[in-house]
Amino acid sequence: MSTHTKKGRSNSPLAQVVREYRDKYTLTQEQLANDLSVDVRTLRRWESGDTLLHDVRELRRIATWLGVEPERLGLAGSTYTVLTVEHIDSVLKHVWELINLARSYEANSLIEKLLQDLNAQITTENPILLHKLAQTLHLAGYVKSVVTRANEATYSLNHYREMERVARLIRNDTLLNIALTYEGDMYCRGGDVPRGILYLEAARDTTPRADIAARGNGVQLLGRAYLRAGRLDEFEHMMAEAEELSHQIDPQQSSTCGQYSLGTVYEEYGRSYSQLGQTQKALEYLDKAEQSLEPTKHWEILLKTARAMALVRGGEIQSGVELAVECIEQCQEHGTIRLMERIYGIQKHIDNLTREIGRAGTTLREALDGPIEY
Rank of each mutant, 00 (worst) to 15 (best):
V321P: 00
V325M: 10
L286K: 10
M309L: 13
H298M: 08
Q280T: 13
R313L: 02
Y269T: 06
L303Q: 03
V325A: 10
L286T: 07
H298W: 07
G270P: 05
E326R: 02
E300N: 14
Q280N: 14
L286M: 11
I328Y: 07
T305S: 12
L311F: 05
Y285G: 07
A324K: 10
Y285Q: 08
L293W: 01
Q280F: 11
Q278W: 01
E290R: 15
T305A: 05
R307W: 01
T305E: 10
S272D: 12
Q330D: 15
I317H: 08
W299R: 00
E322S: 14
E290K: 15
L311R: 00
L283C: 09
Q280H: 14
G320C: 07
S272C: 08
D287I: 07
A308N: 02
A310M: 12
P295W: 12
G315K: 02
T305Q: 06
L293S: 04
I301M: 05
V325E: 12
A306L: 02
E329N: 02
E284M: 02
M309S: 03
E294L: 10
A306G: 04
Y285A: 05
E267C: 10
L276W: 12
G315M: 03
A282P: 03
L302E: 00
Y285M: 15
I328W: 07
D287Y: 03
Y285E: 06
E322P: 06
S274Q: 08
P295K: 15
A310Y: 00
D287E: 13
W299P: 00
E326H: 01
A310N: 08
L311E: 05
H298E: 13
E316C: 06
Y273W: 07
L276E: 14
A324Y: 08
T279I: 08
A306P: 01
A324L: 09
K304A: 13
L302A: 08
S319Y: 07
L303I: 10
G314P: 09
Q318A: 14
E268N: 11
G314K: 06
L283V: 09
E294N: 10
A306S: 13
S292L: 11
R313K: 13
L276Y: 13
A282F: 01
A289F: 01
E322C: 05
L286C: 11
G320P: 06
A289K: 04
E268R: 14
L323G: 03
Q278E: 12
C327M: 13
E329I: 03
C327V: 12
D287R: 06
L302V: 07
E290F: 12
L293D: 01
K288P: 04
I317C: 08
Y273R: 00
L323T: 04
L303C: 06
A310I: 10
E284G: 05
V312I: 13
Q291L: 15
L311S: 00
G277T: 09
W299C: 03
L303D: 03
P295H: 14
E316K: 13
